[in-house]
Design a binder for these strands. Structure first.
Lengths: 190, 190
DNA sequence: CGTGATGTGGTGCACTCGTACCATAAACTA
DNA sequence: TAGTTTATGGTACGAGTGCACCACATCACG
């Protein structure tokens, strides 16, 4: 094949531009021409590598989700070879919070897509904000009696995320609130 | 003054059109021409009663918040003259969930504005999704020792709202999860 | 009766949008 | 070397946008 280029690298480069614009000003800022300018490539290239604008946005989201999942698994693996259920659960919950620039940008982009998915019923399953995989993982870690607590924990983390993004809540307080709940669910035997 | 018309009524009529469009397809669907068509008035009237599009969107949000606050207070007043703290807290939390068409539409519109406010730092305080007034009210109702639980409850309700809007959670399950938390905070003395 | 404030309606302009289309360069295959 | 596929660049078009501007009703007041 002639003129071989690294398709995947190009797509990631363009997708990153989508993320920056969407995180800064929502999906409506991620117009084709603006993404092209942000990425430093001619607008025509977005057409070539993604097709229509809809496909560009969805493609960029898929790449973001892949990145996020990889980063999350890496962070959980870093807990050691025999992490306690509490440690794993805490990691999963922290994954939903904007605790560093990567997670913050992902949360912002997800929020932008969230509204779009509320309108587009056919694409809802593409949201990975609080996917069933998380619920399943947590269900494995916790005894059945704590199922309701676990579901509410996930919802709580999502809510804390929103408050943090709005600047209504500091990272310290959010972590503190989560740890308070964990203390209750995993009582210190002492 | 000549040709007196009910300004407030006209503004509400137009604002309602904004809500419907924003709830159905996000803020970007609420273009001036489309809102005019939806409201059944010439586009020029939006200019006259609201000015620029930005002012139209903000004005529509203020009216929505006023409506929501009135409805919430009415629902709390309906609890009787000496409601228990648990009842009040439960009502406040339910106010955040899309439990009927009114609240559902309000939640959808709020979600649409949420993303916009993430970008526009100067307008953040206009969001009333989980305003400090709620936190203050709850702080009054609960002993200091439950402050952390209350904050997490509010976050949890916001998270449940998102899952319900996405169709990942039924109203019954959401209410059940909240009641489960309330049972813990207000133990049955029996 | 005017006179001026208040409200209505329509149109036009400058701009951005998404995407289709066309020409050409580059590199692999035969 | 010729031919084919892959990739790039630029442009043009129709549609939709926010908003400014203008002409005209309608009514209260002098």
């Amino acid at each position: 094949m002639p003129r071989q280029v690294d398709h995947e690298a190009r797509r990631r480069h363009i997708a990153a531009a989508v993320w920056r614009l969407a995180a800064a000003g929502g999906l409506e800022e991620a117009t084709i021409r603006r993404v092209a300018t942000e990425a430093g490539v001619p607008a025509r290239q977005l057409q070539y590598y993604f097709g229509t604008r809809e496909e560009l946005l969805l493609g960029a989201l898929d790449l973001l989700n892949a990145d996020g999942e990889a980063e999350a698994q890496q962070r959980i693996a870093a807990l050691g070879d025999a992490p306690s259920p509490r440690e794993v659960l805490r990691s999963v919950l922290h994954e939903l919070l904007p605790l560093d620039e990567n997670r913050r940008q992902r949360n912002l982009v997800h929020a932008a897509y969230f509204v779009r998915f509320l309108a587009d019923h056919t694409l809802r399953e593409r949201i990975r904000d609080t996917p069933p995989e998380l619920e399943n993982l947590i269900a494995l870690l916790l005894p059945e009696e704590h199922r309701a607590d676990a579901d509410f924990l996930l919802a709580g983390a999502a809510g804390l995320q929103g408050q943090m993004l709005l600047g209504h809540l500091t990272a310290e307080r959010a972590v503190e609130l989560i740890d308070h709940q964990l203390d209750r669910i995993f009582p210190v035997v002492s």
